[in-house]
Design a protein around this nucleic acid. Sequence first.
DNA 1: TCGGGCCGTCAAATCGCTTTGGAGCCGTCC
DNA 2: GGACGGCTCCAAAGCGATTTGACGGCCCGA
Lengths: 342, 342
Amino acid sequence: MNLKELASKLGLSPTTVSRALNGYPEVNEATRERVISAARRHNYRPNARAIRLATGRALAAGHVIPLDTRSEIMNPIFSDFIAGSGEVYARNGYDMILSVVPDDMEETTYRDLRSRGTVDGVIVHAPKTNDSRIHTLKDIGLPFVVHGRSTGSELDYNWVDVNNRRAFQRATEFLLDLGHRRIALVNGLEVMDFAVRRRIGYSDALTARGVAVEPRLITSMEMTEVNGWRAAEAGLSQPAPATAFLCASMLQGMGVRRSIEGRGLKMGRDVSVIIFDDDLSYLRNGEDVPIFTATRSSVKEAGKLAAEMLLSVIHQPDAAPMHRLLEAELILGQSTGPAPKT
Amino acid sequence: MNLKELASKLGLSPTTVSRALNGYPEVNEATRERVISAARRHNYRPNARAIRLATGRALAAGHVIPLDTRSEIMNPIFSDFIAGSGEVYARNGYDMILSVVPDDMEETTYRDLRSRGTVDGVIVHAPKTNDSRIHTLKDIGLPFVVHGRSTGSELDYNWVDVNNRRAFQRATEFLLDLGHRRIALVNGLEVMDFAVRRRIGYSDALTARGVAVEPRLITSMEMTEVNGWRAAEAGLSQPAPATAFLCASMLQGMGVRRSIEGRGLKMGRDVSVIIFDDDLSYLRNGEDVPIFTATRSSVKEAGKLAAEMLLSVIHQPDAAPMHRLLEAELILGQSTGPAPKT
DNA sequence: TCGGGCCGTCAAATCGCTTTGGAGCCGTCC
DNA sequence: GGACGGCTCCAAAGCGATTTGACGGCCCGA
């Protein structure tokens, strides 16, 4: 059932039917009713392919997910992020197109999406410092929103981000207040921009209190459980072991906990741990009582906001760049306590 | 730069240019060369929207991700699955369209995808027993491949699945061989078909050895860390506590471990644990030495196979239904050992 | 030399919608 | 009574590709 058939069934022209369905004013309300009910009755849905060609819009948003060529690790926050954005797209009649692309092919992908007209805009995931994709996208004129920011880019662009620096600064201060002095940072890879910001927050807090930043207490690895365990093993087996760990993710935190308990110590009493909690639906930080003390910011919510921003950018391409900085909450759990007496 | 422009630049008709680029035989090799190099030079890419309308194909595959209306939990295996399928689609010039949909809206979504012509076929995720989506899809004639199976459906359909029953049967036998008799099953929700199959494998193994299946040792919850912990707390605090746990996922296994270690026991010595390991990229089971003894089957690989199957179904809609049953490997880790002497 | 077949190319129709530029009808105002 | 507007509606021209059917050369065999 297509527009022409429906029109002829109604004894109307395709023009009128199209206008009736799309809410244009130049059609009599009575006929509009007639058209709408006939459309429903015959189960008519306009062909998306034709609409796209006719309007020159793709009615689709792209998410280009970089897949690290060496490690092949997918970012685990990704599924919750798209759960958030997907909802927004669905509500607005947009499709969500995913490309999982080896990270050295991203630029080609953007150019392709643009010149073939597959999408109206894209979300940029996992920005690095001085990320070249921002230039590329500005260059080819494809609307985009970055989830995160890229230090070093002199361009202004649309982004949604968490205040990573502040979150880690606060967490570090909290540990300092508890008397901890040897606080280990279990960071993500510092090619990622957010990881750099987190380290800065951490160092700033230490420095402000006159506590030296010790490189031996800082690790920067992919955010997995095993790497968390490894970092804790290193931090706890030193002559002057860490008394607290600040982790960039829940999974790392779980690895740290495994190391602590494997040594017969108790988390929250002998060693304190704070994590960054993305509030992933399948990785909740306990239920009523949080397991980990955490700085929390929902990644699903970020996905929603980014999608909304993208749609607005698509509709008003010439508007000034938009920014949205989210603050993480500091949540008190069972994994922190006063520094043990030396 | 579109086809017409390119054609006029070359002094050729659009027809010829189109044929040259698409490898049709009725065009002179010399002109083909000329066309191809001109296309490259002018950076011409055919407009996907036009191709879709002209050919009547969507050149896109849909993944409808059910979002549990109550718990809002995304399945964590999902990101690795689409990493696998995405690669296949990309290689074949297909787009991947994702719809994250409240589970009571899935049917509407399928009908919509079909009648608006957004996709050529879909992958069905997370089938339940007697899943109505299979009927719906057959009914509306949209090609599909199920990741998993649905017991109770009398229809024959395309699927890619792991031999869940066998995997859990083998794991249970392995624990029995180690002398364990009180083996707890930490299962997923048994509305999911795969969870039912796993329980059957578990019970079959016990029954075959004359060990009674004790309901008090079986839990069936969403597969999170906290639920794993909870199940272990229950299983370990009974008068005759479990000596081994068989978990449906790595996250549950981590929760079980937390409970074990929280009681001052040692996993692998005092209590044994086997997990089902989906080989998720961000949740590796250790590195060289696996942490958990596990039945392992890569969900990314399953994604690849499902996508390949879907493409083949799209191209040959009338072929007989295809099936692919994957066997899980049994991997020996550090989490299992002989049952402690009573 | 003429007709038939093959090769290479093209004009035009098509896909299913949107959108521009009227057209017809009726009522109002001068 | 005629011009002008406002309502409704329609015919036709797009969007940018694919694809059908046909046509002009050229070669070959009769």
